[in-house]
Amino acid sequence: MELIIAIFIGLLFACGVYLILRRSIVKVILGIFVLSNATNLIIFLAGGIKSEAVAFIPDDAESLNPELINDPMAQVLILKAIVIGLGIAAYILALKYRYFEVTGTHDLDQLKNTDQK
């Protein structure tokens, strides 16, 4: 399974890189989303996918054997990454919106220098 997910991540990365190499800013933003998802998956995979158990301590127990669950730290990290990714997404989209309104273009090649026309 790890092999398949690794290949899947590779595919996501390939698509993401292809998208952020575009000139159209909309595609670049899509690429950023794909890449952030792919990166989250890498961390997830690093936490291990051996177990299917939820990282909950049973009601009748005081602690859990760490062997039984996948690394919860990876999940914590991804949780933060997702939320921060959301913030970035909102900001980028707003920025893009303004950028298009001011410059009238969505071609990044038109954005080579800081001088205004």
Binding site: A6, G10, L11, F13, C15, V17, Y18, I42
Partner: peptide, 21 residues
């Protein structure tokens, strides 16, 4: 050209993940 670069990147990432696994 971009497609080639992205495929190489994807392959490379897969290899890195497998190694890390």
């Amino acid at each position: 050209r971009d497609a080639i670069i992205s495929i190489i990147t994807g392959l490379f990432i897969t290899l890195v993940i497998l190694k890390a696994e």
